[in-house]
Nucleic acid binder design. Structure first.
Lengths: 167, 167
DNA sequence: TAACAAAGTTAGGTTGTGCTAATAAAGCTC
DNA sequence: GAGCTTTATTAGCACAACCTAACTTTGTTA
């Protein structure tokens, strides 16, 4: 909303541009190359939109693009993609952690990731890391699940002692 | 990424439109009316952009707009605004909870809220609610803070018993 | 109440991101 | 290697959301 600070944007790219870089990166990682048609399919746009964007990304030095000859990411592009991938994972993991189903978490992560400031994503990532380091599923998550289902909170659960209930 | 489902969008409005409705709502709540200049200031856009959007929102029946005479929200607009406000609060509270500072949480909430599916926001809200219902700050949050600062996790903290440490 | 200031609007432009239809290059296949 | 298919590109259009500059309405005040 406030735009002054909105420009604390992660990297200097638009949401759409970031999306393209991410997809190109993951296609290359998976198949060794990224074809226009595949990028288009992944982003649910038409091929001309991809061509168009490739030209723009090339101008900004995120990719090297030769017409009819495919794309590769520049060092700058790879760096960006890796940052984006990390934040995407952090976000998705977090959503899954609080019980959003995997598919939806994936979608939502795609949408949200371009909007969060770096600091916030990092907090989130930290939080997930913290939880994942736990030897078992931490009780508060179990309690939360239970609360969601039943609306009940485990009594006194933050008072003194507690037994981990096995479900 | 996948756009098929991306269209599980909260309401049928663009991000920008939602932002305007939210701001108008909160200005009216605060001052009793919403002037073009104030909306513009709040959204960090110029007055003509506001006028323009008001015309569109009027056409879609979210506001009643008469030129030079100000805006009011329709029932439909109020309903939307309330939904948006709720999700905004949920999101912001959540971010604050995991330690994002209030101002940044506010900004990020503004950005993100338009992008999340309803289900995910609801999960988040539920989570915050759950945490807030705790009689004291739940230990996992304390532990998380500690982990953030020092990188250490409290040993065995999820094993059997635990004393709440008073800071 | 005439005149000026403030607030809002219109007209017209720009940019980003998408589209379709038409065209061109590349890659097969006989 | 001629011709067909697939893939990619160009050209040209559309639309959302912004902008500036010029204009209009409203409100104030001398």
């Amino acid at each position: 909303m406030a735009n002054e600070l909105q420009r604390t944007k992660p990297i200097g790219l638009s949401e759409a541009e970031e999306g393209y870089v991410e997809v190109i990166y993951s296609l290359i990682k998976e198949h060794g190359y990224a074809r226009v048609a595949d990028v288009a399919a992944a982003l649910n746009v038409k091929p001309p939109s991809v061509t168009n964007m490739l030209q723009r990304l090339d101008k900004h030095k995120f990719v090297t693009y030769k017409r009819y000859r495919g794309v590769v990411l520049t060092r700058k592009g790879i760096q960006l993609a890796e940052t984006l991938e990390k934040r995407h994972r952090a976000l998705k993991n977090f959503l899954v952690m609080i019980g959003v189903n995997a598919e939806r978490a994936e979608q939502d992560a795609c949408e949200i990731e371009h909007k969060m400031t770096r600091e916030t994503v990092e907090k989130l990532a930290k939080f997930v890391e913290f939880v994942n380091l736990a030897p078992q599923a931490p009780p508060f998550l179990e309690h939360f699940k239970h609360y969601e289902k039943t609306g009940e909170r485990p009594k006194q659960c933050y008072r003194k002692n507690q037994k981990k209930e096995s479900k």
